[in-house]
Design a protein around this nucleic acid. Structure first.
Lengths: 225, 225
DNA sequence: CAAAATCTTCAGATCAATTTCAGATGGGGC
DNA sequence: GCCCCATCTGAAATTGATCTGAAGATTTTG
């Protein structure tokens, strides 16, 4: 059973989350509650939780402050619940070292999934299989890319693109899908940046760059041989 | 079955979308209709849809306003349909939290794909069945075509035509239907281009190209044996 | 704070895909 | 069999998606 701490001042939301998390699967989670920031810090110190669910807007001490404090001594997974999907807020959360966030109102199943996934990842229970294409391999667990025995250093975007392509080896991935998956859900990115990154990626991969094929009008794909 | 809400004032477009979404795959979608903004909001509140398709230009309450309202309490996937590909409009839509955008005239399969992909992302599901005709197979999920064990590379239009034919295997598809579905519903395409693409497709498919039969005056069809 | 790395924007080049065109073909009705 | 018109075919013209190089903006790093 995983033990999580929920710091949330709204009784309705507390109730919803507790209900869902304890009823969904019997004995999967135990949810402890703190109704404000200071109590949250206290409780977090008392017990080594598997995950913290922090509301951002809290009286006295907000979620960001709690996160900052906790991160000084623990790398427990932290998931923010926030009312504002404000870009700067989200970035702020990540800067403080949070693992994920959900924006209110969120579907409970989504929260449930995220919590489960985060805990598993934190515990090292999730190992992603290494992806291959010919002599090219990408290890999603440590972010390394190896081409013909040589380790290759890629930028974040290059790595992201390569990973999506390899995860879908043999499939044609549309530019739109790539943008969505690498740049994020509703990106406002100009479509042309993808061209540039694809080119840089191909160059970075050397001979293996040829594996990345253009399907004009349809997208890109990576080939084994 | 996924339930989607279409808010659109043009009866022709409504009809096209409903036809395509309900006929394409049996029981894949149920499409509810709202003919104006206020009715759209009402219906959206009544039932938890899997996705909303909103026309931007609507009498009374436009798509943007609906989106803004909906986003206050739900993160249901929202896809805009718009006549203008105006950059600022699109950015506006994304700023309001829409998930995607299609510009009229759009090919119905594209819309269908986007809707499927969005719901899939929201739920983590949805797979299209592979289509077959003899030794020929087309996998709509990864965009691959295999003829007699060999993977075949097709251009976007060739793939589009083949997919429509296979989706309607055994029945005759008029040239008009093909143009509508592959080029978009109010294409200005000269009818003769289809001849050329059919020829190229037949050639690309090799022996399997013979499966594509001409029904003079009525259209084309693809045969199993 | 400056330098370096990365990401994005832009505009012109390139080439496959698409469209256009004109003459050939051939199936079906008479 | 003959004619007509839809379709086919080959080749040329056009389009437009992608590539490329370079420069500007932004972020990260020392």
């Amino acid at each position: 059973m995983y033990r999580i701490l929920l710091v949330e001042d709204d009784p309705d939301i507390r109730e919803l989350i507790i209900q869902y998390f304890t009823k969904k699967e019997k004995d999967a989670f135990r949810v402890d509650i703190a109704v404000n920031g200071p109590r949250g810090l206290e409780k977090a110190a008392e017990h080594p939780y598997d995950l913290l669910l922090l509301d951002v807007m809290l009286p006295e001490l907000d979620g960001f402050a709690i996160c900052r404090e906790i991160r000084r001594r623990s790398d427990v997974p932290i998931l923010f619940i926030t009312a504002r999907a404000d870009e700067s807020d989200i970035l702020h959360g990540y800067a403080l070292g949070c693992d994920d966030y959900v924006v209110k109102p969120f579907p409970l199943p989504v929260l449930y999934q995220k919590v489960g996934a985060l805990i598993k990842r934190a515990k090292g229970l999730v190992r992603f299989p290494t992806l291959h294409a010919g002599s090219l391999s990408l290890n999603p667990n440590n972010g390394t890319v190896i081409s013909d025995g040589q380790e290759i250093t890629l930028t974040a975007k290059e790595y992201g693109i390569l990973r999506v392509l390899l995860e879908n080896k043999g499939s044609i991935i549309s530019r739109e899908q790539l943008l969505n998956q690498v740049w994020g859900y509703n990106h406002t990115t100009d479509e042309r940046v993808l061209d540039t990154h694809i080119r840089n990626l191909r160059k970075a991969l050397g001979p293996d760059g040829k594996r990345i094929k253009t399907a004009i009008g349809r997208g890109y794909t990576i080939e084994d041989c």
